[in-house]
Amino acid sequence: MAADVDIVRAVARAPLRTLRLKEVPELARNTWRTTDRLVEQGALVRLAHGVYTAVPDGRDGRTWKPPLEAAALALATARFGAREVALMGVSAARHWAAIPRAIGVATVAVPRRGYAPVTLEGGGLVKFVPRNMDTLELVLERTGLGEGLVTTPEQTLFDLLGRMDRDGLGREVAGAVENLTPQVKPDEFAKIVARARIVPAGARDMLKRLETANG
């Protein structure tokens, strides 16, 4: 059906190939039933209630699912808008290969507070962390669903030092801190520490360690 193709194309054109149902164009008599049918056919994937992702070309949504970090960023983007959210904390560490194995929690920086965690239909919990986006060091990176913002290795390290015991991932975070350290530029990390209103325990010691390692 022409409406089916148009709906899939509309979702695929959205940032990170993801739209909320209320933003899907009303191209069919019943958009809700049509999107559900497209999920059953493998053309769309339902990330969470009312949020749909267009499957990359050549994939079948009945067997394919996006990586947790990409899905979390896509979900947040659908809620808050493109370039308004960023992978941070353990999710940014995963992006920078500082956490080698998959974990079941994703963290996304968002511009407003008050949003409860969301469990994705494909598995995994997405946590929304309110942050002033203008104060974060961010870079545009490619994810499994397209380009999105990620905290830099320096910002990621700083954030992890402030969340060492959160989410029951203490061991993973400690490992990520060690694995990130070789990627971090001391001068960039120093700038983040200098302008921070609250400096995590261990951040200044980490800065000394970085400066010593780099002569």
Rank of each mutant, 00 (worst) to 15 (best):
A2R: 15
D4T: 04
D4Q: 14
I7Y: 04
R9M: 01
A10H: 06
A12T: 06
A12R: 12
A14P: 09
A14H: 03
A14G: 09
P15V: 03
L19F: 01
R20S: 02
L21K: 11
L21S: 07
N30L: 02
N30V: 10
T31N: 06
R33A: 15
R33N: 12
T35A: 14
E40R: 14
Q41I: 11
A43K: 11
A43W: 10
A43T: 05
A43H: 08
R46Q: 15
A48F: 00
G50V: 05
V51C: 00
T53W: 02
A54D: 10
P56M: 08
R59H: 00
D60N: 13
K65T: 01
P66A: 13
L68G: 03
E69K: 03
A71N: 00
A72W: 14
A74W: 02
A74F: 04
L75C: 05
T77V: 02
T77N: 04
A78L: 02
F80D: 09
A86T: 09
G89C: 00
S91T: 15
A92T: 12
A93C: 12
A93P: 05
H95M: 05
A98V: 00
I99G: 10
P100C: 03
P100A: 01
G104C: 05
A109Y: 01
P111V: 09
R112I: 08
G114E: 12
Y115W: 08
Y115Q: 05
A116W: 14
A116H: 12
V118T: 12
L120T: 03
L120W: 02
L120A: 02
G122R: 07
G123F: 01
G124P: 04
G124E: 01
K127P: 03
K127H: 14
F128G: 03
F128E: 01
V129C: 05
V129E: 10
V129A: 06
V129L: 10
N132M: 09
D134W: 02
L136D: 06
L136H: 08
L138I: 13
V139R: 12
L140N: 11
E141R: 11
T143R: 07
G144P: 08
L149N: 13
V150M: 04
T151S: 11
T152I: 07
Q155S: 06
Q155C: 08
L157Q: 10
L160D: 03
G162C: 04
M164G: 07
G168V: 11
G168T: 13
G168P: 10
G168Y: 01
L169A: 12
R171Q: 13
V173T: 09
V173R: 07
L180N: 06
L180T: 13
V184D: 03
E188G: 06
A190Q: 11
V193S: 03
A194C: 02
A194T: 00
A194F: 08
A194G: 10
R195A: 15
R195S: 15
R195N: 13
R197G: 06
I198Q: 14
I198K: 14
V199Y: 13
P200K: 06
R204K: 15
R204I: 13
R209H: 07
L210D: 08
A213T: 00
N214M: 03
G215N: 12
G215E: 15
